[in-house]
Write a protein that binds this DNA or RNA. Structure first.
Lengths: 217, 217, 217, 217
DNA sequence: CATGAATGAGAGTTCATTCAT
DNA sequence: GATGAATGAACTCTCATTCAT
């Protein structure tokens, strides 16, 4: 059955890859359930159905698991951004935004605490490294998306706008996923998030700038 | 029992109160320096200059310290909101907003990691209880402030608007304090935060489509 | 029964001191039985009848136990050296030597592996610190003892002689305690060790220097 | 089965022998660098450029590596002893001694920690077996060497003398290689070691008392 | 009430050894 | 025979919490 021409090493790598994925998924579940400190590597191994030793074969320490989780999330977000970006030509800024919000909410609702953890605990761990390398992709995609709609955007500093938009976006989606306001239906929530993002980007600073009482009788 | 000699018991209470404050301040320093899990109750005691036993006299466990820290932060924010609120009659929404952002940034820059921690780890601890009781005050104040400027605000659901504004506000201030965008000067940062808040509140959704009256019967 | 005038802190210190002694004795037994790596801190605690936490209250880490053991041994040797030194006026160098050998053999036979361990593993741990501080005392005493008998000693460099004598002494006593030559009675062993030490110290280098076959018909 | 084509099996054995040597050399490096417990079999394999499995093919466990290292060292010492022994007819005891000391110092200075380890940790591992089998050779050679110079040696029990001389020799050479006395030049150190050995062997016990003929009937 | 020594469960991590390929 | 991924027991050390003094 096993033809001799098959690359000797392939199956091993496939196995490894599968193992790594299994461990990462287990880590996702465990970290989502218990938070960073509450989670422990032995349980990750148990949930993954492997020995601790195997976890440490692929991840040098606990933090590495979080980093991997972060990368997994970033990949996920990049995929979404790329999909929406691909269709961006035919979409208005609001349409693109609402689509992103909707897709992102789905993602965050699967593992809400994990997302919060990635947002909150990861910076403490390695600040520079993981954050800059992996997140760079999200940053770049977002910036591109904004650049493509620059006609509708009033904020002059695109880098700053990207920074602000990302922070708002992540926080509002996290919040909506983790503890949504009571009695607000999903559509309204999504629209509110979009409004916030678009408000910032498209607000003509003029009228409100000089908002002295006299301006508005 | 309340005999005319109040002092009998008062000093003890005064003492207690002072002790509690000392411990909370120590906790603030320690949690800000090491994060939730990195902090340990024995060091809080040492920094406070008391014994661990005394810490546990007033705080049943580690989490209680975080809760106290949260309340302290809320009190602080309420004070700021009240001060700005008192002057709100004479201020435009933008002026009020910019003042709040500026004051808030000062606060968060003193203990940036602590603020992040309160934002991220506290929900894990007791979710409902502490959050709703203490934060209610901030929520109410913010809602009042928005209500007073309802003429300028286009968002129809005030509760939802309060929710969104608070999340944006906290996140953007945290981010600005903890890892600000490189090469952006403080004034621009403060204005960007204000723009975001005001954009959401005052943006007439019309120009970007979708939110035309026809869409919302 | 407990008179109020008793120093408040004394009992606590007495307790601590006792605890520390208990732990050190337990460590001596455990390290002697299993060697450095074979020993584990939890067993030391168990043997001492305390919790691991208490061990770590007084000893920051495993190595500190070995250091303490070393100091204990050095104190022991210093006591012996001082006793023999006190009587040194009335003793010839050989008498002093034989007395030291006899006393030292007793000590090393109680915990032979521990002595070996202190000799072998301690240098790996901190080299400088413990060795120089605690061992200095033994070095000094030995040097003094040699100086007092300088008339009988032919070695010109007293420091070097002290170094050589200490190494020989320790090694021969260790060896005699740990794996003595078979079929040699104790008196002969002790005398051999003394011979070695005295031979080095008192050997007139002359006759052997030019030890050409011609010199001895 | 032993067909005339010896080569059939020979190359495999040659390979094996080479592999074993490679592993032992790697072990030497690793144990010298990290000590017994610090060393780990996986690194030995990595340094040797083979898999752990191969290490375990030839050495049943970690201790077996140390035993092999000991035998390697013994072989080395035997070679030296034989070389000096071969020239012993033309050498005085002192000359032979000084030559041995000089050669031995070279050896120990190459892998000082390893030598210490062999001296200190090996006895703990298998005590009897390896030590007696392999060391027997060194013992015998040394005894022969002493016997050849019996005219110059005053110690009556040759076995005991061999035992004492070997211990002194090894310890002093170890010490000189691992932590030599400060400020002593190499020649003086070598002479001191030789003096110690020769003093023991050739000292007429008379002058220092006690060992007068009357004392030993 | 204050103290702080004592507790001990529990966590992260290592590494000798095995065995399916 | 060779490989090296997988195992999992075991170890060091921490720290929230208690309670005798």
């Amino acid at each position: 059955m096993k033809s001799p021409q098959k690359p000797r090493k392939e199956p091993r790598q496939a196995r490894s890859r599968f193992l790594v994925e299994t461990i990462v998924e287990a880590a996702a579940r465990v970290f989502d359930a218990h938070g960073y400190d509450g989670a422990n590597t032995n349980e990750v191994a148990r949930v993954a159905g492997v020995s601790v030793g195997s976890v440490y074969q692929y991840f040098p320490n606990k933090d590495a698991l979080v980093t991997a989780l972060h990368e997994r999330h970033v990949r996920h977000m990049v995929r979404i951004l790329d999909q929406v970006g691909a269709a961006a030509g035919a979409l208005s800024l609001r349409e693109a935004t609402e689509r992103l919000v909707a897709r992102s909410l789905e993602v965050h609702r699967t593992e809400p605490r994990l997302q919060r953890l990635l947002h909150a605990d990861l910076p403490t761990l390695e600040q520079q490294r993981a954050l800059s390398e992996a997140s760079r992709a999200v940053l770049d995609r977002t910036r591109q998306l904004l650049a493509r709609h620059s006609a509708e955007i009033v904020q002059p500093d695109l880098d700053l706008a990207t920074y602000v938009v990302l922070r708002m976006f992540e926080e509002l989606v996290h919040a909506a996923a983790l503890d949504p306001p009571p009695g607000v239906e999903d559509g309204a929530l999504r629209r509110a998030i979009s409004d916030a993002l678009l408000g910032y980007l498209t607000l003509a600073a003029g009228p409100t700038r000089a908002a002295s009482p006299a301006d508005r009788p």
